[in-house]
């Protein structure tokens, strides 16, 4: 099996995700873009797993999903409390951590 097409797709998804993280200000969108990057990685893992014919990549993909789910719980909680205090979900508004 030739994984090149899958890898192209994974790279594309990762780039879109990374660009979204860097460019968008809305915290929810940034969050979704992070999910996009994680899933791009998952796709690459699964593709390699298929290519090598073993299950290692797929197991790691499951791990990634579990970690992503946990991360979403924490992240959404942060976004909600941020929104409550600032009435905005823009990441640039939370810029107090500086000298």
């Amino acid at each position: 099996m030739n994984p090149v097409n899958y890898l192209y797709l994974a790279a594309l998804l990762f780039t879109i995700g990374a660009a979204g993280v860097l460019i968008r200000r809305n915290a929810i969108v940034v969050f979704m873009c992070i999910e996009l990057m994680l899933n791009a990685c998952n796709l690459a893992f699964v593709a390699f797993s298929r290519m090598h014919g073993n299950l290692d990549g797929q197991i790691i993909a499951f791990f990634t999903m579990v970690v992503a789910a946990a991360e979403v719980v924490v992240g959404l909680a942060i976004i909600v409390s941020l929104f409550r205090s600032r009435h905005s979900a823009s990441v640039d508004d939370a810029s107090l951590m500086k000298l």
Partner: peptide, 17 residues
Amino acid sequence: LRKLQNGYARSYAVSMF
């Protein structure tokens, strides 16, 4: 160097990338 610590999460992300 202090100017790098601007508190914008996105600029930190740029430097990480």
